[in-house]
Amino acid sequence: MSYRWDWSVLVSEPYLGWLLAGLGWTLLVAGAAWVLALAVGVTVGVLRTLPNRAARTLGTAYVETFRNIPLLLQLFVWYFVLPELLPAPIGNWIKRELPLPEYWTAVIGLGLFTAARVAEQTRAGIQAIGRGQTLAAAASGLTLAQSYRYILLPIAARNVLPPLTSEFLNVVKNSSLALTIGLLELTGQSRQIESATFHGIEAFTAATLTYVVLTTAVILVLRAVERLVAIPGLMARA
């Protein structure tokens, strides 16, 4: 088997442009999905720790639903099934007029899936705090909302930074599944290059290295954040 190596395709037009566009979409999908995952995930995680039973049940139902269905299937459901199930006007609007349907479907699918995992980290981070500080807050007259806002969440945020870092890395990597609904993000673009040039190995290598650089950057930034918010007198987490 002889494979004709040619790394120059990676820097020649239009392929370099394709790769950069792919990188751009990967960043846009991962970034927006992460914002959604944090917002929904922290909310659901808090629900699961509240004294109110209905709130806890709702939170648990969310987590179990989104965590137990494969992400790929969830993307298909959002993209192909949901528009058919919604009332016709809304479904048709999604199919015909929603701008960038692949993009928004990927963001919502990936965001809501990741939210279930963020929720579990948040719940664990809050429950690791123990009852004492909650009691102290209540004893001083703080409302439940205030004790979450000023005590539980700031402590939990520090507890969950390391696991959240790896969730964020998962979002970056899972964003590649968006190619299955037609979004040409980084992995999708490298496949395009391979079919156009038959230089798949070079293209996939470039994509791989780009993911490595991206995830390394994420790790470094979040480590710096961890150090920044570390509580004086407590050992920094390994």
């Binding site: 004893a139 001083s140 005590i151 402590i155």
Partner: peptide, 16 residues
């Protein structure tokens, strides 16, 4: 509660 002070065995200060 805001009018009653409470002190616990394990202090329960806010660590952050």
């Amino acid at each position: 509660r805001s009018r009653i002070g409470m002190v616990f065995q394990h202090f329960e200060l806010y660590p952050h």
